[in-house]
Design a protein around this nucleic acid. Structure first.
Length: 545
RNA sequence: GCGCCCGUAGCUCAGCGGAUCAGAGUAUUGGCCUCCGAAGCCAAGGGUCGUGGGUUCGAAUCCCGCCGGGCGCGCCA
């Protein structure tokens, strides 16, 4: 019986060879890579290249010496030396295809880091002000944040998804005044229209609803409550339609009412980290890498926004989150240094790199060859709801998470509208539906699949598929560690592509029972892996399309 | 001006703590359904990896300069 973990097997063999040959360097770190080219085997080690310099030996000869120490067995073939000194390992086909059985046994758990405890993690994302509907930038954040959360859960973390609601402050004040003015019949730009008021149509809708509910227009506080409640409802409905749920909604106003903002300032001052200048209170953030000190309390007595921001992060720490990831737009990157500095200045033992950030570039929406400007204040922007209505939730989620977070995103509405079938999500979903269709056609009992003779899966395309399946767990681990959910989308694209090729080249439901069973087992493993990956991205895995 | 990020095929983008990548999709062109779903497959053309240096046995990948683009540089949030 071949081993279940070929990587560990090869590492052991390699380590043993090193101890024999170069005892002094035998404990050097071993990195086994997956060669990109199929001809280079299943695993590759560059250890000879790494050691060549310190040992002052020819890398290729060293590699050959190491390879000569490793014998072929039932798990691997005899390793080969290639290029400047790589040692390439090729698995026996039964070893390689053993992953099929692992997938079938693990089911929905395949790809997850079994038995690992990562501790508590909080992922904060979206955190939109309740001053308007969610725009496509929020959509990107929702897709990224939710996928990242799922990835971290798969790595054994206990994840809390959190939405920080700014329900206090000037933006909300502006919202209330805008609604009030609108209800009084004013339009944006009219004399008496509030400074930088919100001009979107939703303001008028809220104003009409407020009047219809017989609200007292002169009561600005009542208008504020009504407008905030109304927009929160709308945002919640949009998020629900997007398939994103939050565990905690944290209200900024509670930081004030619970005295947490004052407490932060007291501690800074008590630690001697503040000073008075020009009638304001300043924090010495330059002690922690900021390029200038920051105002804490303005000369008018109010706090600057970053104080509640720090107070909020203190609650994260106090709630026991030692790992926190904030998903935000790159336009917020300057706040990173400030928030971290504010936390440092508390002398509370919070590490300098706390919290982590996943920053994403803005989404540029193109329509009719022109950019649609995204701006809350302008009021004319594409909303998450628009995107969902146009191309469907699955396509929006997959698309928005298919790109590196820090690359600028061009979302072509016309393309999405006219050619939805070009969206890569359908390609992946189609592979899943195809497998389902094969099984429907077959109509047999899937219980026989785990007993399939997997050594029969030795064809070129079967080898490629099986290798790809084996990469899934490490792909997820890397994506989680690098905060890079897009890697999952690219992986699924590749897996689906290899399945489509296989499907077109080979018939699954052949007459030979043993071969048919083996191929069905492979298909079942592909289906399971596709479903697991899509699930992480919040995308459905349909049986029919 | 300063800081961070980004320049890879016509277009949209992967690859980037060196070596075993010049890559994917799309678009263009040509093939493949009497046979498990053609929303698919196979094949072809298409790029000095912005540019100029540097380090190395080896650079799309690391370092520096320049050019081009994005985002920040408030006693706004």
């Amino acid at each position: 019986m071949a081993v279940d973990d070929p990587r560990a097997h090869i590492e052991q063999a390699l380590r043993k060879a090193l101890r024999q040959l170069v005892p002094a360097s035998a404990e050097a770190p071993l990195v086994l890579e997956r060669p990109k080219q199929a001809g280079h085997g299943d695993f590759s080690s560059n250890v000879a290249l790494q050691l060549a310099k310190t040992l002052k030996r020819n890398p290729r000869e060293l590699a050959q010496a190491i390879a000569a120490c490793i014998e072929a067995g039932e798990t691997i073939e005899k390793p080969e030396v290639a290029g400047p000194g790589f040692i390439n390992f090729r698995l026996r086909s039964a070893t390689r295809s053993g992953v099929v059985r692992q997938v079938l046994e693990a089911g929905a758990r395949y790809g997850r880091a079994a038995g690992r405890r990562g501790g508590k993690v909080q992922v904060e994302f979206v955190s939109a002000n309740p001053t308007g509907p969610l725009h496509v930038g929020h959509g990107r954040q929702a897709a990224l944040g939710d996928a990242l959360s799922a990835l971290l859960e798969a790595q054994g973390y206990e994840v809390t998804r959190e939405f920080y609601y700014n329900d206090a402050g000037a933006q909300i004040e502006k919202l209330a005044r805008s609604v009030q003015a609108r209800a009084r019949g004013l339009r944006p730009g009219d004399p008496g229209w509030p400074e930088e008021g919100y001009a979107g149509e939703y303001i008028e809708e809220i104003a009409r609803a407020f009047v219809a509910a017989r609200g007292e227009l002169a009561d600005l506080e009542a208008v504020r409550r009504f407008a905030v409640a109304s927009l929160r409802r709308e945002q919640d409905a949009d998020l629900q339609a997007f398939g994103v749920r939050f565990d905690v909604y944290y209200l900024e106003s509670s930081l004030y009412t619970e005295g947490r903002v004052d407490e932060v300032v007291r501690r800074w001052t008590g630690n001697g980290k503040t000073y008075e200048k020009d009638g304001a209170l300043w924090l010495r953030t330059t002690l922690y890498g900021d390029d200038k000190d920051r105002v804490v309390r303005k000369s008018d007595g109010g706090y600057t926004y970053f104080v509640p921001d720090v107070a909020y992060h203190v609650t994260k720490w106090d709630r026991g989150f030692r790992k926190v990831i904030n998903v935000q737009g790159t336009d917020h990157h300057s706040t990173i240094t400030r928030v971290r500095a504010g936390l440092q200045a508390l002398d509370a033992g919070i590490p300098p790199g706390y919290p982590d950030y996943l920053l994403h570039s803005l989404v540029k929406v193109m329509r009719g060859g022109a950019e649609v400007k995204i701006s809350k204040r302008a009021g004319s922007y594409v909303t998450v709801r628009d995107l969902i209505d146009w191309v469907g939730r699955d396509a929006v989620r997959f698309f928005l998470v298919s790109r590196k977070a820090d690359s600028e995103f061009v979302f072509d509405i016309d393309l999405a509208l006219q050619r939805t079938e070009d969206n890569p999500v359908y390609y992946v979903q189609y592979a899943h539906a195809r497998v389902c269709s094969v099984f429907a056609q077959w109509g047999g009992d899937a219980a026989c699949l785990p007993g399939a003779d997997l050594a029969l899966l030795a064809g070129e395309r079967e080898t490629a598929l099986v290798r790809r399946l084996a990469e899934f767990p490490e792909t997820l681990a890397a994506a989680a560690a690098e905060l890079a959910p897009h890697a999952v989308a690219f992986y699924l694209r590749s897996l689906a592509g290899e399945f489509h090729s296989y499907y077109n080249a080979e018939r699954i439901l052949v007459d030979d029972e043993a071969l048919r069973t083996a191929r069905l087992a492979l298909c079942a493993a592909v289906r399971q892996t596709l479903a697991n990956g899509l699930s992480l991205l919040g995308v459905s895995a349909p049986e029919k399309m």
